[in-house]
Amino acid sequence: MAENAYYTLVTSLPHIDSLFDSKITPISRLQLDRRLSMLNQEDKDTLIKVEQLMHWSHLGEDVDEAALIKLAARLHGELPSQTLRDLINWRLDMRTVMAALRRKMQGKQAPGDPQWSFGTRYAYIRRNWSNPTLGLQHAFPWIPQAIDCLNRQDYLSLEKTLLEAVWRRLDDAGRQHCFDFEAVVIYLLRWNLVARWTAYDGEQAVDRFNELTDLALGEFVNPLSGTRDGDSLIEQS
């Protein structure tokens, strides 16, 4: 796509004002995909790679971690822009940090495999496993807050903290890019955050939780649920 041709696409995308105040996405995914069809094939391929790196909801629960790390490294190496590589690295580092904090919370030791995760900080994290903030509180100022949320088991606040950190990082990156491919990618990532936040639904979460507990308990679900045959555990609590 010619450099100037991003002007049409970027101005055709509705402004995303804020994350937590959003009730719906400013544009539907269908419409967004239609607008993104203005991109040339090379840019579309890059966009697919970025989404593959950032979104794992399509992956099954029995995903092969080693293969995932390899895939991430390959896709990351194919990205054409340093800004995008930095942005993706930051996001992957964030996931690695959270994985490490959760492992630490469970009392587990540092991972044995030197390449235990992706991004750029996994080796550093492994070396600084004993540090409460993994030695990264300056690079990731939200770590103390995340640890606090984990300690209190306040997972909603944790989710908000993480989403806000990503939102700020995308805001910072967005200020340096107005009418280029990076601006399109940043918009898409922001849209995905809003879509994720607006899709959170308490009732759906309870249903999903019940579904998972029923699945885990299997044939023992009825005795455990007491007198109310078929009722869920969460409803009793």
Binding site: N4, A5, Y7, T8, L9, V10, T11, S12, L13, P14, R35, F179
Partner: peptide, 10 residues
């Protein structure tokens, strides 16, 4: 003009 065309879509 390209920016104007994009804005008119929105």
């Amino acid at each position: 003009g390209q920016a104007a065309c994009g804005a008119m879509l929105d």
